[in-house]
């Protein structure tokens, strides 16, 4: 049976910064449990040294030269911000120091 407990869902949701109600936690635990049981078959597919593929078409060393390209104006940058002041994005106070 699945290892997706309600506590784990709560923890994952907090890592992902998504507020979840207790009811959602229960529901997600159930749904994710089924999905995880199904996708966990990948662990059986591979044995020994198979290289991991993180990029479908192997490429390397793609660089841009160190030159300045046009930036947005301050007005453009802030144009879709929910809130801004003094040329900066405005957000609620931050919880903890770090």
């Amino acid at each position: 049976m699945s290892e997706i407990t309600p506590d784990l869902v709560r923890h994952l949701a907090s890592l992902a910064r998504i507020l979840v109600t207790d009811q959602e936690v229960e529901q997600l635990a159930g749904e994710l449990g089924v999905i995880v049981d199904s996708v966990a078959t990948v662990t059986k597919a591979v044995s020994g040294d198979v290289a991991a593929t993180s990029h479908p078409i192997p490429m390397a060393n793609v660089y841009r030269e160190d030159v300045i390209l046009p930036s947005l104006t301050q007005l453009q940058a802030l144009s879709s911000a929910p809130d801004s002041t003094d040329g900066r994005f405005k957000v609620n106070a931050i919880l903890d120091e770090d």
């Binding site: 997706i4 784990l8 869902v9 994952l12 949701a13 890592l15 992902a16 998504i18 997600l28 994710l32 999905i35 995880v36 996708v39 966990a40 990948v42 662990t43 597919a45 591979v46 198979v50 290289a51 991991a52 593929t53 993180s54 479908p56």
Partner: peptide
């Protein structure tokens, strides 16, 4: 998002994301 957060989280990465990338190779 929550499934993906799980697949990448420490302790599960190798089993899930890591294995999935190996399947890609296969």
């Amino acid at each position: 998002i929550i499934l993906g957060t799980y697949a990448l989280s420490s302790g599960y990465y190798d089993a899930y994301y890591g294995s999935a990338q190996k399947v890609r190779t296969l």
